[in-house]
Structure formats: C-alpha cells, structure tokens
C-alpha cells in the first residue's frame, strides 16, 4: 500500500556565515536544521510534530510545502517526488497541500482586503467561472469558519480583525482550494487562551468533514494530544520517538520525551508531578556530536551514546524510538533511518 506522504531521510543544511578567518582557512560550517527525518503519513491520518524551538519542526514543514529545498533525502506525495515537480504538476501539488501559519497577524497581506486575499487562491487556480461565483465561494468559506455574516469581513483589512478572526480567515483561504493535506504550524500559539479552543475545534471539525490529512507542528504536547493520532517528538533535527499519541505521552520511552512530558506544567495544582531533570545546555545544531544528539543532556547517558548514533527502531506498541536504552534485535547496518550519510 502506498502512503499519502512519505518522508525519507530528509536533511536540510544551511551554510553558516562565519568570520573572515574560517573563510580563509576554507572550513565550511553548516547548521543541520533537519538531520535525517523519516516518517510516513496515510490518507486521513493526523501527525503531530512536537519539539522545542530549533528542533527543526518548522523547517520540516517548509520542506514538505516546498518553500525550501532539501539538502538530501526525499519527500514523496501520492507516490511522486515533490522536489521534481514543476509546471502544472507543481501547481496541482500547491493546490493539494495547504499551510496554516503560526502568526495570523502576518499571514495576510496587510494591503489587501480580506476579500482580495481570499480571491487570490481562486484566481491562481482558476477556480470559478466569474467574479460573482468566486465571491460566492469566498462567502461560503468565511461562513464555514464561522465568520458571520461573511460580507461584513469583505472590505476589512487584516489590522481591523482580532487574532482569532484572522486565523479563521487563514483557514478559510486554505480551504478554498480544497486541499488534501493541511499542515499547521503552531496554529494557536499567538492566540489568547480563551479563543484557542474555538480554532482547534474548527480545525478538528474541518478535517473530519473533509477527510483531510493533517500535520500539526507544536511545542505544546497537550495540543498535539488533542489534535493528533500519531506523535513524533523531534530533537535537534531528528525524530527521537514516534508512535500513537496516547502511547508516546502516557508511556514516553525516550529520555527526552520523558523530560518533555514531565516538564509540562499542569493547570491542576493538586496533581502531583515528578519532573525528570535534564541539563540546561545550549544545544547547537551545528557540529553535531557523532553519537546521540541528546547525549549531552541525557540523564541516562551510556558510553555507547557518545559515539554511535541510535537508529529510529520499533520498540513495542507501534512506537519507534531512537535510543540505545532499547536494544533492538535487528542487526545494525549502514543503511536505515539513522544512518550517517556524507553530504555530497
């Protein structure tokens, strides 16, 4: 069976702008923003990419959206290599994959009215026969995201709307092209607590109603638990644990996941917590250690962790973990998910 989205050993490196000395010496330092990410996503599935700032989750999203080009690795959508798409194939890909931005205040052109912004996808994809029909579609989309009555929003500019309303407009814009895959990067982190639930519920309804496949990117595990059936936890550009959301959050296996889950504060002050302590160091995505990227901070670090990078391998209950604490029966080869690949 083929998957809707298949990401294989995805890598993205940025050359580091370094000083004159290193330029003369000819040394080339790179930032490994995404360092070998692999996962598959089936139609109708919902994946949560969790992790702290700088773990590469947003870069992964932008690679999938083809806003960035990968350094190595591949992304296949419905069996086709995304990097190789061009012309009408690319346009059709753009129609099938949509993005919800983190900052709704910046996601709409400040000089466009809401109507103008929402007509844009219809113009680009030549949806609708006449301007009247397009306006009808826009009205329908605004209505669907509970912005009522739609006409009252047509001539508003983004700065006249609240964050919650703007995010709904952004969702409406994505819906207008009838996408298959929806990627949302921290869709509510800029919104006030009291209105977050409204936006999240809307997105849940929409994905159920339209059988959307979704990827949610968030630092907030609670949000991912609410929205996603599968969770991948990222650290320094790699996935350290992936599996069914309930499993990953209730029984975290990777020491990093354990620390992350236990550190999340709880709104209920009576519930006891036993946080796992890990060191506060400056994790830098350049000059990665040869071994496990988490080794420096890991409370259960072993000798092997410092020189051998663990592979993302199945443990149990459908969970895959990249950690030497979970020795695996399959023999290690140079192939596979965590294999070190020299950039060409």
């Amino acid at each position: 069976m083929s998957h809707l989205l298949e990401v294989t050993d995805l890598r993205k490196e940025y050359p580091l702008q370094s000083g004159l000395l290193s330029a003369v010496m000819g040394s080339r330092r790179v930032v490994h923003a995404v360092n070998g990410v692999s996962f598959v996503l089936d139609e109708g599935g919902s994946l949560g990419l969790a992790g702290e700032s700088g773990c590469g989750k947003t870069t992964t999203a932008k690679l999938i959206l083809r806003l960035l080009h990968p350094t190595a690795g591949s992304i296949r959508f419905a069996g086709r290599d995304v990097a190789a798409l061009d012309g009408s194939d690319l346009l059709s890909y753009r129609r099938q994959v949509q993005f919800i931005f983190q900052n709704p205040y910046e996601a709409l052109n400040p000089r466009f009215t809401i109507l103008r912004s929402l007509l844009e996808p219809l113009i680009i994809h030549e949806i609708g026969q006449s301007i009247a029909e397009r306006v009808e579609r826009v009205a329908g989309a605004l209505d669907r995201v509970h912005l009522n009555p739609p006409e009252t929003f047509f001539l508003k500019y983004p700065h006249q709307l609240s964050g919650g309303q703007l995010q709904r407009v952004v969702i409406a814009r994505a819906l207008l092209v009838d996408p298959v895959l929806l990627v949302a990067d921290e869709p509510v982190s800029m919104l006030d607590v009291s209105i977050r639930a409204g936006v999240l519920n809307l997105m849940r309804e929409l994905s159920r109603e339209r059988k959307l496949t979704t990827i949610y990117i968030s630092h907030d595990l609670a949000l991912i638990r609410y929205m996603c059936s599968v969770t991948a936890v990222m650290y320094l550009g790699t996935i350290c644990e992936i599996g069914p959301t309930e499993e990953v959050i209730e029984h975290p296996r990777h020491p990093y996941t354990q620390a992350l889950v236990s550190a999340v504060p709880d709104p209920d002050p009576t519930r006891p917590r036993r946080p796992v302590e890990i060191a506060d160091t400056v994790p830098t995505p350049f000059q990665l250690p040869a071994g496990c990227p988490f080794a420096d901070r890991c409370p259960q670090v072993m000798e092997v962790c410092r020189h051998l990078r663990p592979l993302l391998l199945p443990v149990d209950a459908g969970v895959r973990v990249a950690c030497h604490l979970y020795p695996d029966s399959t023999p290690r080869t140079a192939e596979g998910y965590g294999a070190k690949m020299e950039p060409h």
Binding site: V97, Q98, F99, Q102, E106, E120, P121, H125, V177
Partner: peptide
C-alpha cells in the same frame, strides 16, 4: 508569512 502564503497557494 503572507509572502510564503502566496507561494503555498501556488
């Protein structure tokens, strides 16, 4: 974001 949004929209 809105420039990236334009790219995402095609």
């Amino acid at each position: 974001s809105y420039v990236e949004a334009a790219r995402v929209l095609g």
